[in-house]
Computed example of a mutant assay.
Amino acid sequence: MSEIKLYNDDCIVAMKKVADKSIDLIVTDPPYNLGNFMKNRDTNLSKMRDNFFGSAGWDDMEFDDWEKSMDNFFKSSARVMKKGGTMIVFMAIIKVETIIRLAEKHGFYYKTTGIWHKTNPMPRNMNLHFVNSTEAWVYFTYKTRTGTFNNGGAMFHDFVETSVTPNGERKYGKHPTQKPESLIQHFVEILSNPDDWVLDPFMGSGTTGVVAKRTERNFIGVELDKTYFDMAKSRIEEKRNETKCN
Rank of each mutant, 00 (worst) to 15 (best):
S2N: 11
Y7R: 04
N8A: 12
D10H: 11
C11H: 07
I12Q: 05
V13S: 13
A14D: 05
A19W: 08
K21R: 08
I23E: 04
N33T: 06
N33F: 10
G35Q: 08
G35K: 04
F37W: 10
M38A: 10
K39L: 14
D42G: 02
N44R: 15
M48V: 12
R49W: 13
R49G: 10
R49N: 14
N51A: 08
S55N: 07
G57C: 14
W58M: 08
M61V: 03
M61C: 08
E62M: 12
D64S: 13
E67F: 04
M70G: 10
F73K: 00
K75S: 11
S76P: 08
S77R: 00
S77Q: 00
A78R: 06
R79Q: 02
V80N: 05
M81P: 01
K82F: 02
K83W: 11
K83A: 09
G84R: 00
G85V: 01
V89T: 09
V89F: 07
F90A: 07
I94E: 05
V96G: 04
V96W: 01
E97H: 15
T98L: 04
R101S: 15
R101N: 14
A103M: 12
E104D: 01
K105V: 13
K105Y: 09
G107P: 12
F108V: 03
F108C: 02
Y109W: 04
Y109K: 01
T113N: 02
T113E: 04
K118E: 13
N120T: 14
P121V: 03
M122L: 14
F130D: 09
V131L: 02
T134G: 08
T134V: 15
E135C: 04
A136D: 01
W137N: 00
W137E: 06
V138M: 03
T141Y: 02
Y142H: 09
R145L: 00
F149G: 02
N151I: 00
N151H: 06
H157M: 12
V160A: 02
T162E: 11
S163H: 15
S163F: 11
V164H: 00
N167K: 13
E169W: 05
R170L: 12
K174S: 15
T177R: 13
Q178Y: 05
K179L: 13
P180G: 02
L183A: 06
L183D: 07
I184E: 03
Q185P: 07
V188S: 05
V188R: 07
D195C: 09
D195L: 08
D196S: 07
D196R: 00
W197I: 09
W197S: 02
V198A: 10
L199D: 02
L199M: 06
D200M: 10
M203G: 04
G206W: 06
G206V: 04
T207E: 00
G209K: 11
V211L: 03
A212P: 05
A212C: 10
R214A: 13
E216S: 02
I220Y: 03
L224N: 08
L224W: 01
D225H: 04
K226R: 15
F229S: 10
M231W: 09
A232Q: 13
S234C: 13
R235E: 11
I236D: 03
E237W: 09
E237G: 05
E238S: 06
N241P: 09
T243E: 03
T243W: 07
K244F: 11
C245V: 15
N246F: 15
